[in-house]
Design a protein around this nucleic acid. Sequence first.
DNA 1: CTGAAAGCGCTTACAG
DNA 2: CTGAAAGCGCTTACAG
Lengths: 342, 342
Amino acid sequence: MGKRVTIKDIAEECHVSITTVSRILNNKKGYCTAETEQKVLDAVKKANYHPNPAARSLVTKKTNLIGVILPDIYNYFFQELFQGAEDFLREKGYSLVLCNTDGDAKREREFLNSLSQGVVDGIIVSTSNREDDNSTILELAQNKFPIITVERYGEELKDIPRILVANREAESMAVHSLYERGHRRIAFICGPVKADNAKRRLEGYRLGLEEVGIPYDEALVCRGDYKLDSGYRATKELLESQEFTALIAANDLMAVGAVRAIQDAGKSVPDDISVIGYDGTLLAELSKPVLGTVILHGYDMGKLSAENLFKIIKGKKIADKKVVFKPELKLGESIRTIQKEK
Amino acid sequence: MGKRVTIKDIAEECHVSITTVSRILNNKKGYCTAETEQKVLDAVKKANYHPNPAARSLVTKKTNLIGVILPDIYNYFFQELFQGAEDFLREKGYSLVLCNTDGDAKREREFLNSLSQGVVDGIIVSTSNREDDNSTILELAQNKFPIITVERYGEELKDIPRILVANREAESMAVHSLYERGHRRIAFICGPVKADNAKRRLEGYRLGLEEVGIPYDEALVCRGDYKLDSGYRATKELLESQEFTALIAANDLMAVGAVRAIQDAGKSVPDDISVIGYDGTLLAELSKPVLGTVILHGYDMGKLSAENLFKIIKGKKIADKKVVFKPELKLGESIRTIQKEK
DNA sequence: CTGAAAGCGCTTACAG
DNA sequence: CTGAAAGCGCTTACAG
């Protein structure tokens, strides 16, 4: 870059002190005449002057940067989350530092540590779907560093502002919905053991069964890993050994795999087997048949996490330390009514 | 946050000057005994001391932040681009500031202006698929601000480091491939008028036809907007008025729309009509039939743009100001051989 | 309404 | 091998 214009240059140009320029730039009202103000503003514009963020930051202890730590940028939910946060925070003058952990707890810890040491003013950190380690988050929060977690579990986080998804309710709702359409044999493909939300979705499935009075049958449950292939394989296995008219997968990707397996076995979705996914991704919408799924409202979650983080930074109280988003069941073309319940 | 530990605290703790601490932290060798070094390093670790980035930045004029300006975070190509850049730059100690323009030229200009004023050390800016305005980029580059463009066109950018995709070659390759499989009536769905790469892909289609000796027939070309629906509608129109055995869509999303339209018209892909997309997205891979597509190597492009940007920042020469990536045609299940060419 | 001066927490010539 | 001091470009009490 060429020689930078500094506040001193502007001050000299306008024959005022740098104090005055600084005040005008920071919208401190009532300190000077409108003339002076206009003169300075003109000079600033003419010189295309922008205050040096580092210098400003050194004094104010604010960077106007927010860190967003995610495990997977290829995942639609996290893209929505990011976008919701960005849309809110950009308005407030923040830029976002996006950090991709790839589900690696060590890398997550590094990001948390480095970002919190003066790089950003606050952090939004989401779940990893693998092994989470909440100790660093806890430490930061105890040091009053503004941080908010999204879809992250653990008793130790109870005092930390967080935003969650009602995973149990959602899957229970899916079971209810299938039950009402006459389904009694409902299979379930769950996510990886290590993922907290996978556990919760499975619990929701069991809860739903219990509520409608269907006994839980372990043989109808298969383990997956949130990837397409695992959904395919699990469904294939299920088809070989079990009878069922509906299947719930703990995410959309596995649901697509399930649909494939069903079709490859010469059966139809939804004529022979109804399928419901989870996440409400574009994938579900673009599937053929359009996949029934659970919509998570990632965008709104991102927006709210940004709003709450912003409040924390500004020293305001947030309404609820813990906000649980209720997902929405979206019926697609992949669900068939066998028989209306009377 | 609690009271921050500063370099002064460490210096006092170790009974050395802050100069010495600074030098050790910055790996300036040969300035002190191994003992002193160890003593300081221990204190740093014990206090969990991290130098204040703003203070450091104020002196060094470096922020260790890189801006990445993209039009659409939901687009797989840009996700790959980002990831490639992040993987390289994280290694070098940088964090990435991700800015989403949503294709808005005004917002892009704002990001370019604000980021370049001391927020980041360099910028990777990609195409918008809508209206691009290269003037700000040009200005920054002229002021020696490290910037690199990806898949962005315009004669005025000729002296600016950039990374491109051989769009023409790719589509011409697609035509060749279909031709070799016996196809003679090949339809094309192009992208939006304003997108430079859409124009190039169309040119590639025409070029390919010319090369294999098929006359260009305007009636076989329909305008889309890179969205699924436009692919669906365009294909529906084509099916109603034209005879063709193959169709190329300028991106995967429109290709999926095309497949839908073909199937909804009671025809089969690839038995009746072969389809080739563009972008090599997961969508193509997850489609049924698996979509033949053009793989863009977004990850490698992101990595190289990061590498080159890094070199520019370090004042090194980059090998080529302009690098053109050759896409790869990936045959899926959506392409049928009508008749082998002799 | 305005400004001189201190200070934010570092790095880096410069001197020894 | 080590340190005192200047200076990076701002903001903000403090004084007028």
